[in-house]
Nucleic acid binder design. Sequence first.
RNA 1: GGAUCUAUUGUCUAGUGGCUAGGACGCCACCCUUACAAGGUGGAGGCAGGAGUUCAAUUCUCCUUAGAUUCACCA
Length: 774
Amino acid sequence: MQEPKLKENRWNHKLEKDILEKWNEESNIYKFDENADEIFIMDTPPPYPSGRPWHIGAAAHYSQIDMIARSQRMMGKSVMFPIGIDRNGIGVENYTEKKCGVSIHTTSRENFLKLCKETFNELEDEMITIMKHLGLSCDFKNYYRTDSDEYRALTQSTFINLWKNNLIYEDTRPNNFCVKCGTTIADAEVLYDEISTDLVYMKFKTEEDENIIVASTRPELLGACQIIIVNPKDKKNSKFIGKNVIIPLFNRKVKVISHPQAKIEFGSGVAMICSYGDFSDVRLFRELKLKEIVMIDKRGKLTDKACNYNGLSVKIAREKIIEDLEKSELIIKKEKIIHRTPICERSKNPIEIIPMKEYYLKQLNSIEKIREATNKLKMYPKNSKQILLDWINSISIDWPISRRRFYATEIPIWYCKKCNEPHIPKPGKYYRPWKDNSPFEKCNKCNSNELIGETRTFDTWMDSSISALAISKLRNNEKLFEKTYPTSIRTQGKDIIRTWLYYSMLRCEQITKKIPWDSAWIMGYVVDEKGKKMSKSKGNVVDPIPILDNYGSDNFRFWSAAEAGLGSDFRFSEDKLRGSSKFMTKLWNIARFVSSFPQPSKPNLTNTDKWILNSLEKLILVSKEAYKEYNFFIPANKIREFVWNIFADHYIEMIKTRAYGEGNFNKEEIESAHYTLHEVLRKILQLIAPITPFITDYVYRNLYESKVHNSKFENIINIEDVSDITNNIIEFNSNVWNEKKSKGISLRDEISFQIPENLKSYEKDLIIMHKLIK
RNA sequence: GGAUCUAUUGUCUAGUGGCUAGGACGCCACCCUUACAAGGUGGAGGCAGGAGUUCAAUUCUCCUUAGAUUCACCA
């Protein structure tokens, strides 16, 4: 026995800081080697800094992504683990407006961009600090930003490519429009919220002066009504079908027709169809070829089509119209209903449907290919595939990609001032048409020499959806691209399946004719202690910084791995974190115990030692199998169980006396114990290193003078399978402990106890361990 | 309304057509035992409800209930 190499009697997570510094100096051990035998390319999410604090779920998410990288390395692959920051779009613009007290509509574009960039830099610093603190083994030195000139040039060049392939067109059509953000948004950016609103029952007159009651939640759109529908089976109202009715206040005639979309039991059974209250209005206008009346403009004000209500905001106009109808006694009743209202994902404001001229990316023709590719894509967990297929199956219109915003990649087009002909520049450069000089001297069509730059930008997903192309260096390093694309895996959250996952498949397929990855790994949410989704508006977000400071990263990482199976949501709980910190202490103390013994070369092993090594081998096989499936729940729990409930509680207790060199053991038996203790500890450290990189690195360095993160998982070969005996050993020990307990004697006291036949091979250790007497 | 998933002790979870249903946190009792009292040993406590298949169901099937997610509809 020697002085233990580990002095403290518990794992001190403050050591993580020192370890991080060491890693910083040695970061080359994670370096990606494109010429390695096996390479593993990860398309990791560039996080989006949308405000403070960053989500605890994101910390768990990136921890697990790191476990993928580390476990793949230890299985012998060279891993490309890039990290980027997504720095485009409405999210940060809205945050900047709030934080700086400015408005995008009243500040200069130049100044607004500057403020957004500053905001990004601050938020990004916090994210990078957390990611480093977590011990991520990604390539921090080369981290990318989606707003860099290089990245934006790539986004633009892919657009130019699509333009040339006829996949882009401009069209005016009703779209989701967020008045607060001042821009069109895509279906994927729409959320729904249950909002209470008034269903207003209004009295219309037919030409024959009969009363017909129309129920609507949008009376302010009265003036945009083009038709009224009644269900053909509606006994009460079908008498109106075919008649003309007069819209109150506007005194315009519209027809009542029969249409199955009118639900008899909803409201009065009579619905007015206006351009555009919701998407069913849009559908009916299209179906019935009605002429739209644009009632709301992009500022959210009523247009001159609204006559007396021109210039009023939607909310005020609604109040005013209700008031005017009431004055004329045209309102029968108002009913509060809960309305599932589409809202903007970023501003949370209700969406209006406004016809706007926008650029579209054709996606309908690609759907079939994407669906086929989805069926082939390996997804972890399997059932997340359904979420993607549901979304793919629900797509019915092309993707509007232009945004009337500033902090995003510019759409690279110049228009002839005279004939309006669009001009697309050469790919490879970053263009800012709103401020750069036109790269075209003359219009190709009319030879006029004045060209004007496009002012709109792209939807942010146009940038982030090509992350796989960016990291594999499309157009930048063709040799590397050939080797690394399609990449090995996309790792991401469940919440962005319909955006990032889908758009990435679409965009990369259109550009490379290939789906960008072999497999996709989808993680669930971290929810609060009551199982509710965390959100800033609910106020139940947990800031990861104090949690990491108080518990340390290894604790946090182990908790996140051990808490829930792949893909399922898991609850955040400090109690659970405290629980995993106990395991860190246990592991530390086992290492401390083992470190007090020498490390002999392999002797002839005793039966007890063969048994534990065989059990360890089983554990290694199970854990490696799970790591291959990107599952950390199984290894975390199995390793904990083995380390604590078998290795520490039974094996170490059994061989303790022998290891101390006491009792009647010969030199080889003693060395066998020493060898086995180190062998088990070393392999346990390797096995759990992807999950808890700090403590394992620290212990491994101190005991074995090499780096665990440089090592590969090692199996144990040529060992007899005696795993069936494990339960007998546990049971026997338990029986003896119980017997001593019931006799009221100490565990150190002697006892007379029969050793069963099948445990005779372990007799010598068992007798000493329990002080058994004949 | 459609789809997917889930239901195991106070809480989180593992698991199986047949064993005493395993573990963690918490709880109770006893114990300083040369790694660890942030420990050890022991203990109390559980398969949502109903029906079916079967010699046997917590496990398989169906229904009910509850929850989660997602899509659609909503004047």
